[in-house]
Amino acid sequence: MVLYSDGITEAKNMDMAQYGWEQLCAIVSQNWHLSAQEIKQAVIDDLRRHIGTQKVFDDITLLVLKRMELGVEKKSQPPATALV
């Protein structure tokens, strides 16, 4: 599950193009197999690439929750929740 504020989808680049929920969904879909922390980082990295040097005018809040099957989680695996 990915929860986000409008500051992510409405973030604009220097050409005033918004990041948009389509791009957010695309990045999450491309990285769904990763941990919650890695999915979060992939979204943030892509968002920063999109924004470039443009000033951020809104909050950027992102919560990634990932369900883990009992008995499957490895001790070395990061927590299933990542918050920015």
Rank of each mutant, 00 (worst) to 15 (best):
I44N: 02
T61K: 07
I51V: 13
Q54Y: 04
R67H: 07
R49N: 15
T53R: 04
G7W: 09
T61S: 08
L47A: 02
L83I: 01
M14A: 15
Q30V: 06
L63W: 06
K66M: 10
G20T: 10
G20D: 14
I51A: 12
L62C: 01
E73M: 02
L34I: 10
S76G: 07
I8L: 09
A11R: 11
Q54I: 00
D46H: 15
V43T: 05
I39Q: 01
D15C: 04
N31I: 10
M14D: 15
Q41F: 08
E69C: 13
L70V: 06
S35Q: 01
D15I: 00
P78R: 00
H33L: 10
V84N: 03
Q18P: 10
K12C: 06
V2W: 02
M16S: 09
I8Y: 06
T53L: 12
L24Q: 06
Q18I: 15
D46S: 12
I39N: 03
V2D: 00
K66R: 06
E73I: 03
V28F: 01
L47Y: 00
D46N: 14
H50F: 09
V43Q: 03
L3D: 07
V72M: 10
E69D: 15
A26Q: 10
F57W: 11
Q77W: 05
A36E: 07
S76D: 08
D58A: 04
W21I: 06
A26D: 11
L3W: 05
E10T: 03
R67L: 05
L24W: 04
T53A: 10
S76R: 03
L47T: 05
Q37L: 07
E73T: 00
S76P: 05
D6P: 05
H33P: 13
K75Y: 05
H50D: 13
N13T: 02
G71L: 00
A42L: 08
V28K: 02
D59G: 12
K74F: 01
I60H: 07
V84E: 03
K66H: 08
A17R: 04
N13Q: 11
S76H: 05
L70C: 09
S29M: 14
P78Q: 01
K55S: 12
D45T: 03
P78L: 03
Y19S: 12
Y19P: 14
Q77D: 10
A17C: 09
G52Y: 08
L34D: 07
I44E: 04
A36S: 07
I8Q: 05
L63I: 03
F57Q: 07
L34A: 08
M14K: 05
L65W: 08
I39G: 01
S29K: 14
D59P: 12
Y19A: 10
V28S: 06
C25G: 14
D46Q: 15
A36D: 04
L34M: 13
D15K: 08
A80K: 00
Y4F: 10
P79F: 02
N13R: 03
S29T: 15
